[in-house]
């Protein structure tokens, strides 16, 4: 366990050395909310109460998705920069290695999401410690699930960062756009809504909104959403642990 934490701390130190990216992520979030969010909110305010809040949570969930994608990219970069064989030669189990990656991913996500979360809650006048903590737990679970998906996918794309990026762009288009991050399920046309139930972001976004007190009439059943988010986290992490253990090979050599 100590070695897993040492390995995770190494990754987190690298992460913290890239502070500029966090500032840019927060700035982008603020800009998106201030311009696009507020305009959209005025446009749809007749049908969805407090759409800015709805949108703000959706944007945070997208940030969680992007951070999870970062973990996969980080993994692929390890392979291409030659670090992966070294990490694989260290005396930690493959599961421990994956856990270190997950800790890195969750830390990355929490740093990117926490300030926007506090900002949004403060802005809508609903900032409570209880709300913030439950929202973080919800997004933490979602983040683990996304990390599991991305780490599993990263092995498919091991031969090329470009392939991985292209694959991710396609996946992102599907998972994000066909989810409820920007619009409630009940407003979706019947030909879209069946697709959105396959996106884990749908459940993560609606669960987070529910714990923050958003009108449940616009959301998926929270117990079902919590079950799906937890199931995705456990399932994808187990899958990626199995892939790491059985499939992963750090380098081809002659």
């Amino acid at each position: 366990m100590n070695r897993v934490l040492t390995l995770a701390a190494y990754n987190v130190r690298i992460l913290l050395s890239e502070r500029t990216w966090f500032v840019l992520a927060w700035a982008l979030f603020g800009l998106q909310i201030a311009v696009y969010g507020s305009l959209m909110s005025k446009l749809v305010s007749t049908t969805v109460p407090n759409y800015l809040f709805f949108y703000g949570v959706g944007l945070m969930v997208i940030t969680v998705f992007d951070s999870g994608a970062d973990v996969g990219r980080h993994f692929v970069e390890h392979a291409h920069e030659g670090e992966l064989p070294y990490f694989l030669s260290l005396p930690v189990s493959r599961g421990g290695f994956l856990a270190a990656q997950a800790i890195y991913g969750v830390t990355n996500t929490m740093i990117k999401v926490l300030p926007p979360l506090i900002g949004v809650l403060w802005f809508v006048g609903d900032l409570t410690i209880q709300g913030a903590v439950f929202a973080l737990i919800s997004m933490f679970l979602l983040g683990l699930g996304i990390t599991g998906i991305m780490v599993s996918m990263s092995f498919i794309a091991f031969k090329s960062v470009d392939i991985y990026s292209a694959f991710l762009a396609g996946l992102s288009a599907l998972i994000v756009r066909f989810s409820t991050v920007f619009y409630p399920l009940i407003f979706m046309p019947s030909f879209y809504s069946p697709i959105s139930v396959f996106s884990p972001l749908t459940y993560g976004a609606d669960l987070t909104r529910w714990v923050l007190g958003f009108d449940p009439n616009f959301l998926i059943n929270p117990i079902f959403a919590a079950a799906v988010v937890t199931g995705v986290a456990v399932g994808t992490l187990s899958l990626s642990a199995r892939i790491v253990d059985k499939v992963i090979e750090g380098v081809k050599a002659a």
């Binding site: 030659g82 260290l90 930690v92």
Partner: peptide, 29 residues
Amino acid sequence: REVMGIAFQEARGFWRHKPSSILKFHASM
């Protein structure tokens, strides 16, 4: 992996780390 150590053919990676901190990390692992 607990009983062996390897010096790789291609010394790559750790681009933004210093040799002393790389060795400290290795020693702690």
